[in-house]
Computed example of a mutant assay.
Amino acid sequence: MNSKTAGAVRKLKDGDGRFLWSDGLAAGEPARLMGYRVLIAEDMPDIASGADAIAFGDFGAGYTVAERPDLRILRDPFSAKPHVLFYATKRVGGDVSDFAAIKLLRFAIA
C-alpha cells in the first residue's frame, strides 16, 4: 500500500474499538497491521473505489526473481583520456509464481 492508503487504514478499528494498525515500538521495527509487517510502496494505487490498493501475502513464496548470471561491460571508445567510461548491463526480471500466496484487496468507497 502507499502512504495515502496507509493513512486511511490507520483509522480502522475492530469490533472492540482497538486500532488494527500499530506502529513499531523499537527503532527500526516496521509498523504492523493486525500483527503483520507493513511495507509502504508508493507505486501502489491510492485508495479509491475499484482500486487494488493493498497487496497482502507471502511475497517470498509468491514472487520469483529471475537473474541472468552474466554481466556485460562495454568500454566507451569515445571518452576523453585519461577518463574512461564503462557501461554495465545485467538482465533481471520477475513475476508472480504462486497467485495463491499473494492477494490484492479492492475497496468499495461509499
Rank of each mutant, 00 (worst) to 15 (best):
I40R: 03
Y87C: 01
G24L: 11
R106C: 07
V38N: 04
G62R: 09
A26E: 10
A101T: 01
F107R: 09
L71M: 11
A27F: 00
H83I: 11
T89D: 08
D16Y: 01
F19Y: 08
I47G: 02
F19K: 07
G24F: 02
P82S: 08
Y63A: 04
D52T: 04
D23C: 01
R37S: 14
L105A: 12
V96K: 14
G93S: 14
A27S: 14
D23P: 05
S3K: 13
M44Y: 10
A27M: 08
D43H: 07
V65R: 03
R68T: 05
N2Q: 02
E42G: 06
V84R: 13
E29D: 15
T5R: 04
D98C: 04
I109P: 05
G94N: 09
G57Q: 11
D14E: 12
R10C: 02
G28T: 10
L12H: 00
A101Y: 05
G35R: 03
A61W: 00
L25K: 15
P30F: 01
L71A: 13
G93W: 06
A51D: 06
K103H: 07
A26P: 00
I47Q: 03
E42S: 14
K13G: 02
A88F: 00
A31H: 06
G50L: 04
A88C: 13
F99N: 08
A61G: 15
V96L: 15
F56M: 06
K13P: 03
D23A: 12
D43T: 15
K81V: 07
L39T: 15
D98L: 01
G62E: 08
Y63H: 02
V96N: 05
A51S: 10
I109D: 11
R72W: 04
D43A: 15
P77Q: 10
G94K: 08
A100Y: 04
F99P: 01
V96M: 14
M1F: 06
K4M: 06
A48I: 04
T5F: 01
R10K: 15
D46C: 07
I73M: 15
D98I: 02
Y36G: 05
L71F: 08
D58K: 04
M1W: 05
A8I: 15
P77D: 12
S22A: 10
N2T: 04
F86H: 11
G15M: 07
A31I: 05
D58F: 01
F78V: 06
M44C: 05
A61K: 14
A27L: 13
R106G: 05
A100K: 10
R75Q: 09
A88Q: 11
G24A: 10
L85A: 12
L105D: 02
P30R: 01
A61Q: 13
S49T: 15
A80K: 11
T64P: 00
K81S: 03
A110M: 12
R10P: 00
A108P: 00
A41T: 11
K103S: 10
D14M: 07
P45R: 12
I54D: 09
L74S: 12
S49F: 01
T89E: 13
V38Y: 05
